[in-house]
Design a protein around this nucleic acid. Structure first.
Length: 232
DNA sequence: AACCAGGACGTGA
DNA sequence: TCACGTCATGGT
């Protein structure tokens, strides 16, 4: 079914409005983007050369797990804590005492399950030997679902996989682009069919949707059924 | 002071 | 398949 706003037009509009978002944020790039909503830093707008090292790739994978149903500032604390323990490599993370790991990631919430997830992730990454994982391999890892897998593929591995999240659903629903009840895979296929198959485009699209949703749909006026602002 | 955040898993129908 | 409970800290 045709929507009033197509996905490519939405992309162009958001890009014109907000500019490059520079996802995925990395520790070590604090202060690069003071214009973003919220106090979070670590983004690198316009620079698509990241990640540059195995450590940065693994940091993104860890962040993708830690941010599950969790606000990013909390994830940053956990990542910084892991970094101070020098635990942001698969081997070093596996060497960590389980209790230490749990305490380190505590600020990100769900620390018991996430500690287990991180161990599974680290074990998987250690066994990859630098190879780019397939999506089905990632999905087979305990703790990695569709969104986390696609985040890892798109941002850590630079594979052309669209990421769908709660914000994506909200924006699509309110613009009449898609039924919010549609399955993850259907929405993903829709995006990948309509956008040019380009990694930076997929990366920006996701970042832009989150930024837009945070500004426009995040609270009450939206929840009460009134779309605030001109966003539409 | 509720409400919710860049989900995934286990379970029961 | 699909709805629902669970996991938990910190910001607003």
């Amino acid at each position: 079914m045709s929507a009033v706003v197509t996905i490519p037009r939405l992309y162009e509009r958001l890009m014109a409005e907000y500019g490059p978002q520079g996802w995925w944020p990395l520790l070590g790039h604090a202060g690069t983007n003071p214009t973003k909503s919220g106090a979070v830093r670590g983004y690198h707008p316009g620079d698509y050369s990241f990640p540059r090292t195995d450590d940065e790739r693994f940091e993104i994978c860890v962040g993708a797990v830690l941010t599950q149903n969790t606000a990013w500032p909390n994830v940053e604390r956990a990542l910084a804590s892991l970094a101070s323990l020098n635990a942001l490599t698969p081997d070093r993370m596996l060497d960590l005492d389980e209790g230490i790991l749990r305490q380190a990631i505590r600020p990100s919430g769900y620390f018991n399950v996430k500690a287990r997830k991180l161990r599974c992730l680290a074990e998987f990454c250690a066994g990859l030997g630098g190879r780019v994982p397939r999506r089905d391999e990632l999905l087979a890892v305990w703790g990695i679902g569709p969104e986390t897998a696609d985040s890892i593929l798109l941002y850590a591995c630079k594979q052309p996989e669209c990421v769908i999240d709660a914000y994506t659903r909200r924006v699509f629903a309110h613009l009449g682009i898609a039924d919010p009840a549609a399955s993850y895979d259907d929405l993903k296929a829709l995006c990948e069919r309509q956008l040019p198959r380009d990694v930076p485009v997929y990366q920006e699209f996701h970042g832009l949707l989150v930024e837009h949703a945070k500004r426009v749909y995040a609270r009450k006026p939206y929840r009460d059924g009134v779309v605030r602002g001109n966003g539409g």
